[in-house]
Write a protein that binds this DNA or RNA. Structure first.
Lengths: 333, 333
DNA sequence: ATGAAAGCGCTAACAA
DNA sequence: TTGTTAGCGCTTTCAT
């Protein structure tokens, strides 16, 4: 690998001169600068970014931690983040928590050790406190949480208004005359589960509908969880007229359980999800759901991060951006 | 951020002693080592990985370049890579070429500048030569290509036998008595397009079926490309009895075009894809396709890379790993 | 306009 | 067993 010293030697200059020239420092006169740059190209010089970052005590890398890359929502967010930060000269470093708090803490440590310029994270379902994140903040590294967030005022956040979206969706169901509605919820302590659940409850209260405990289930975010919980619901009459699932995967699981009994969607039981996975439109029947605009979330995360990096003082403390959702009505309701 | 010098000072030791102790160097006696480690934990010391990598002249980062993270196939591969290399102490740095050769070259340069320990790449559809990759090789950085590869003997590769899989799928169609088969192909110069096409052709030749030029289309990898090319095929009678699409997305586009005319799949025209996206099983009718085992590909890429890093001499030059495929027969044929 | 000196945090070779 | 010296490639400050 050719270094600035190699360039300097060949041109009988000092390496500091070369360093300045390559960065267009006004000290160096145009002619010298041109000679240096020409040789740099000729010898295929690449700056050692590690050395630069080391010296600057911060890198051009933005860390991202998600439960799993291989989830449409997360990969779309990440893709959008990369698109934006790339244009600003940053690269992204990714790790997966695999929904494991301990691993998430290790990931955060690695990000710190790697002197990332900032961290964008959607926390694992086990994560309930944020010392590993505030630790980064305390070391001057801005943190942006998205989607699944932690209630900590010092962290910037990009979220959808899960409560509002769930409220709106539930009202729509009620207005369609589905007055008995079951809920297939997510894990207890995850912010999105809680907020969607609360929106669901409050919409029913607003319309003076009784909430039936036996129609409220909790579980995971996966198809299998939806299948299992829907089976449980179906085995305890009376049956609800509609089901609101915490996300689309869970709704797909519910489809399986309902169809297995030979019941019709939506004639016997209507189903609504949350997230608008690509699959949702192709299901039979197509699934009513809430679009979350993950690309928009990613862009917001990236912008917020770049802002925080450029503004290390105020660091957009606790700033929260809410991305609008869209109710998408399809044949399943 | 606390450094080894801080630790050294507090313990009245030299920082090199601390450095050795933290790395369990046998020079340092157990008692001193324990004192040092205890203080390191107490002060929440984190090694500056950038400084370490800078010194070692290589990082613990493995670069990944893909056309787009937000494609189920790629995100699954990446997820598997991360799982494997994480256990070996590596992190991953990702960038997207967005199917653009120029950007891919820049990405590769960035990876080089960042002193990545290795690069794993699936090339853009515009990429036909590999100087940017051999350049990395020449700088001692191992390169592993996967799925979409470049014919260059010096690069390690992880692929599926696209030719063989397409051949097998085509034979299956023929054996089902679909004797007139159209092809919705991918871009001209991409390895997977070419190989799948050739398998398709050769299987027909083997069974002495004539190949009709008007049933061979070329295009992109997206749903819209499939829709467009299928429309073109449908507008020029006679119609084929079956269609083999270069991938599942293109097959989905074909579904749209066929259904729009009120034709039935598979009664009027059978459809087969390639890739086994999650969607494929949910389509109506469920899509016959070829499973590619992306997670398996990812694990192979990671293993090959770790091997190459540990073995910088032979560097697994041009070694090729072929991942088996599975023909998945569903209702669309 | 250019050069010299110093140092970022760490490790390796050598000295005590 | 511990300490000293030197240097990775780069940038910043100060001298020439």
């Amino acid at each position: 690998m050719v270094t600035i010293k190699d360039l300097a030697q060949q041109l009988n200059l000092h390496h500091t001169t070369v360093s300045k020239a390559l960065r267009d420092h006004p000290d160096i006169k145009k002619e010298t600068r041109d000679r240096i740059k020409a040789l740099a190209i000729e010898l295929d010089y690449h700056p050692n970014v590690l050395a630069q970052s080391f010296k600057r005590r911060t890198s051009n890398t933005i860390g991202i931690i998600v439960p799993n890359i291989n989830v449409d929502f997360f990969s779309t967010v990440i893709s959008a983040i990369e698109d934006v930060v790339y244009d600003a000269g940053y690269t992204i470093m990714i790790s997966q928590s695999n929904e494991n708090f301990h691993r998430e803490v290790l990931n955060a440590k690695t990000m710190l050790s790697n002197q990332v310029a900032g961290l964008i994270i959607s926390v694992s379902r086990e994560t309930q406190t944020a010392p590993h994140l505030t630790n980064l903040k305390n070391n001057g590294i801005p943190v942006v949480c998205f989607d699944r967030v932690i209630a900590d005022v010092s962290l910037a956040k990009v979220v959808v208004d899960d409560y509002q979206a769930a409220f709106q969706l539930t009202e729509y169901l009620i207005q369609k005359d589905y007055t008995t509605i079951a809920h297939l919820g997510g894990p207890n302590m995850v912010s999105v589960s809680v907020d969607r659940y609360q929106g669901f409850i409050d919409a029913q209260k607003k319309h003076a509908l009784p909430v039936h405990e036996q129609w409220i289930k909790r579980g995971g975010f996966r198809e299998a969880d939806g299948f299992e919980n829907m089976n449980a619901t179906l085995s305890q009459p009376p049956l609800p007229r509609a089901v609101f699932a915490v996300n689309d995967q869970v709704a797909f699981g519910a489809y399986g359980a309902i169809k297995k009994l030979g019941l019709s969607i939506p004639d016997d039981i209507a189903v609504a999800g949350f997230g608008n996975l690509m699959l949702a439109q192709y299901m039979d029947p197509a699934l009513t759901t809430v679009a979350q605009e993950p690309a928009e979330m990613g862009r917001s995360c990236a912008k917020l991060m770049l802002e925080a990096i450029q503004n290390p003082v105020k660091q957009t403390r606790g700033k929260t951006v809410t991305i609008p959702t869209r109710l998408i009505i399809r044949a399943s309701t």
